[in-house]
Design a protein around this nucleic acid. Structure first.
Lengths: 158, 158
DNA sequence: CGGTTTGGTTTGCATTACCAATTGAATCCA
DNA sequence: TGGATTCAATTGGTAATGCAAACCAAACCG
């Protein structure tokens, strides 16, 4: 444990970091929102598509992961299905459950959009050199909460 | 621009960083959204309140800064005013313009909420020691786009 | 002056998100 | 086994968000 007896100076590193994280978050969200909007995709839809790239979750797991109500997800997936970006399929293990899958069209669109996001943020990330970028990503890692496993039901709180 | 290099490792630092930034953004947004929702404040409202803490912008400047349509801001401010969190006041320089101000109640609520945000993220930021936090904030700085002026005009400029 | 631009609001619409209630499947237990 | 209960997802209702278009008033400019 880091002890508090390090220095007499005030430690404002928490606040400074928080401010930076929040500003960076809004910046990233701004880019995602804008690029999504240019293709009639909301932030949430873009996020879901990104998740579905390498996963095939059930509705309720996805809702939990996103922090959304199940009913919200129902409508969201409805619209995406109507646009041919996602599909529903019965879950093999549980006949009550419904899996969400990305379609080929959805995958294609997603890759294109994430490419645009990369390009849009390149001027920003490019202000660091490769080593700094790696270092930044490394420092960010511990801050990121371990993502809940989507393939597995979170353990019941005791 | 590809070089004829044999032993050079592939530079995936861009993608790794991008992934970290996006995930961190969603994490921060999740916290802000949750804490806002607990007090019936949307993400945008929370953001506006945060901005108004030390600024008194005109409607249109605020809309531009947020990347929102003016009409969106009209409604948003309407609701906030109805709740006593913000006020409108005529701009001194331009009789068409309307300034947005935070009220005392709004300020109080904002401070409380940002305190909660700090607390909620403390476990995450606490996984770094003070020096690492400073370093992370420092590396983040260049990535943040220079924020648009949104010139503070509490006093009459010239 | 008169025409145009700028600042804000209003109205109408789709989307997002929540909650409560419902249907159907799975599970529990007596 | 059967009946009750829990669980997964959808449906219906409401409020908030956000955009676009139409509009008014003030300011700008020839």
């Amino acid at each position: 444990m880091s002890s508090s007896v390090v220095s007499m100076a005030i430690d404002d590193s928490e606040d400074v970091l928080l401010d930076g994280l929040v500003r960076s978050a809004f910046q990233i969200m701004g880019v995602l929102t804008r690029i999504g909007a240019e293709h009639d995709l909301s932030l949430t839809q873009l996020r879901v598509l990104g998740i579905l790239r390498d996963r095939r979750p059930r509705m309720s797991d996805l809702a939990t992961f996103l922090g959304l109500d199940k009913s919200t997800l129902s409508g969201l997936v409805d619209r995406a299905v109507r646009r041919g970006l996602m599909t529903r399929a019965p879950n093999h293990d549980d006949k009550r459950a419904v899996d969400v899958l990305i379609t080929d069209a959805g995958r294609e669109l997603t890759e294109r959009l994430y490419g645009e996001v990369r390009a849009a943020l390149a001027p920003a990330t490019g202000r660091l050199d490769a080593q700094q970028r790696r270092h930044l990503a490394e420092l960010l890692e511990p801050v990121l909460t371990p993502p809940l496993p989507l393939t597995q039901r979170p353990a019941a709180p005791r």
